[in-house]
Nucleic acid binder design. Structure first.
Length: 328
DNA sequence: TTGGAGTCAATAGG
DNA sequence: CCTATTGACTCCAA
């Protein structure tokens, strides 16, 4: 499909008033193009297909998701609800935005070295986009070490990390989320590759897993043992210098699930992982030629799962008592 | 509230 | 210009 059915434009529908407004236009169908008094959403509009979404859906024997998506986008665009960027808030606004994040430490901006020159320039004049934080290699290293000791750090640890690295706590939280997620994904792919490569090219996977994953998945052991555990009672002074991080808080680092221990579903039933009904999965598999590349396979499965999800939602919506309650 | 999954979008590098 | 990387974000489930 030319565009993802659930693009960010549609995502934004879910928020606050936008949702209401859109529902106003999407739902009250049967009074067709008669939008409710007060709702500024008279569809159809000039330049667009004359049908409301509801009509479109009702009239077509099949669910044309692309057309529906297009229509939704039209509605959003016509009401200036589309194209709302997540990062379009001004600096001032970003503060109010940040406050919604739990535990965000607003007093600590990203350290200057985290901002590109361009970003710093933008900082000076009122700018619309929130500058992207770019972690310095030392900061990443420190975070990785912290991860190896504690993949699931306590809020307290996060606070400490943030203050020592001069980062926002939300940045540290995000980093851990992302890192765990990406390690999990790497492991998952590796597993698939291993499964697929059992006969073929055994573990011939390139050193990719080494690169960023150098200390990612495997790192738990190698690094922390090699570099030595937090031996002393104090080494709080420098994350950036100290080879290992001293986060032996509450439970103690022995408890670490360890990267490889991150509760990862074992046993390569991928379909069950994704919850893909066999029919869909089979269809997806049948639709495509047998793949040699396990990545393709994984990708296809994911796509199949996604498609299945969409279909499921559409079906759910279609089977509703109130047929207007479309949930995209 | 927290973590996982998925996604967006800025940035860097080829 | 294209792609990969990665920080930030949203949504959802437990």
């Amino acid at each position: 499909a030319p565009e993802s059915p659930l693009s960010s434009a549609e995502e934004s529908v879910k928020s606050q008033q936008e949702e209401q407004m859109c529902r106003a236009s999407i739902q009250e169908p049967s009074e067709t193009s008669e939008s409710q008094p007060g709702t500024p959403l008279p569809l159809p509009l000039p330049g667009h297909s004359g049908l409301s979404i509801q009509e479109m859906v009702a009239m077509s024997p099949e669910l044309d998701t692309y057309a529906i998506t297009k229509k939704v986008k039209e509605v959003l665009t016509d009401n200036n609800l589309a194209y709302m960027k997540r990062r379009h808030s001004s600096i001032g606004e970003s503060h109010s935005l940040e406050t919604t994040l739990s535990g965000s430490d607003l007093t600590q901006g990203a350290s200057p070295q985290n901002l590109s020159q361009q970003q710093q320039q933008q900082h000076q004049q009122p700018q619309l986009k929130k500058p992207r934080v770019v972690l310095a290699p030392e900061e990443k290293e420190a975070l990785k070490r912290a991860y190896q000791q504690r993949p699931y750090p306590s809020p307290k640890t996060i606070e400490e990390l943030a203050s020592q690295l001069n980062l926002k706590t939300s940045t540290v939280i995000n980093w851990f989320h992302n890192y765990r997620s990406r390690i999990r994904r790497e492991l998952f792919i590796e597993e698939i590759q291993a499964a697929a490569g059992e006969g073929g090219s055994p573990s011939a996977r390139p050193g990719k897993s080494g690169g960023e994953g150098d200390n990612s998945c495997d790192g738990t052991e190698s690094d922390s043992t090699a570099e030595g555990r937090p031996s002393g009672s104090e080494e709080r002074k420098g994350l950036l210098e100290s080879p290992s991080l001293s986060h032996r808080d509450e439970e103690g680092e022995a408890e670490f699930p360890s990267a490889s221990g991150t509760s990862r579903p074992r046993g390569g039933i991928i379909d069950s992982l994704f919850g893909i009904p066999e029919s869909i999965s089979a269809a997806a598999t049948a639709a495509a030629p047998p793949c040699r590349n396990p990545k393709d396979s994984s990708l296809r499965k994911k796509k199949a799962a996604n498609l299945n999800n969409i279909i499921h939602r559409l079906e759910k919506a279609a089977n509703r008592d109130e047929p207007h309650e479309w949930e995209f």
